[in-house]
Amino acid sequence: MKKLINLQPSKPVRVLLGLLPFIILLLLYIGASDARLADNPNDKLLPSLNSFVEAIDRMAFTADKRSGGYLFWQDSYSSLKRLFTGVGISAALALSLGVLMGAIPFFRAKLSPLVTAISLIPPMAILPILFIIFGLGEFSKVVLIVIGIAPFITRDVLQRVQEIPSEQIIKAQTLGANTWQIILRVILPQIMPRLLAAVRLSLGAAWLFLIAAEAIAATDGLGYRIFLVRRYLSMDVILPYVAWITLLAFIIDYLIRLASAKLYPWFHSQEN
């Protein structure tokens, strides 16, 4: 018998062990829900699985009586649009600023303290300012995401640029590269996979800011819906929405990881 520390679970066992906590949680929920519903059939706190199915059917596959649309898909579309716009702008901004500051000492001296200061502002605290300046429309929600995550990604990109060995920059110059060519051929391609990694890390924060902004002022969106139906204690809608957001977050993260591995094989084999 080997020591416990040297025992590796086989693949099926590993999958089973990974699923086990989920199954236990589900069973616990069903047990508790049944107990409460037996006590009071109108209980709203822990709805049965049946009422989840009904709620999903009502939200996703039945046209809304008032607007005629399918609320679940509309909410998903609006939220994802805001999220992708915000994250996309943040990534583009962070990449240009970070590379500029990392590569060119003049920009670093000028901008780096500013970025550090901005990254310390709690974004939620200036949400009212954004609503006052930009109104309650789409723009202020996107700006909140940008303010929330762009400074973090910028600082990460800056640091990664500075980590590129100076030998490479010197070597490029001895091969005849000018400043622009060094940025284009040496720095940018090496930064892209690191940018994707930083974006993956900041996605959680992006979701947080999105849902917060939607909860406060919006007319659709996943966060808006959750906070709207809270007034009616509609756990049967809230819980599927939360599960859906979690699934979306997982899929986006997975897709970015996949794209990075496909596009930058040299980076990922270096890591291992």
Binding site: P165, E167, K171, Q190, Y264, W266, Q270
Partner: peptide, 9 residues
């Protein structure tokens, strides 16, 4: 150089 003379990407 002794190291880092080539471009890893």
């Amino acid at each position: 150089f002794q190291r880092y003379s080539v471009f890893p990407h």
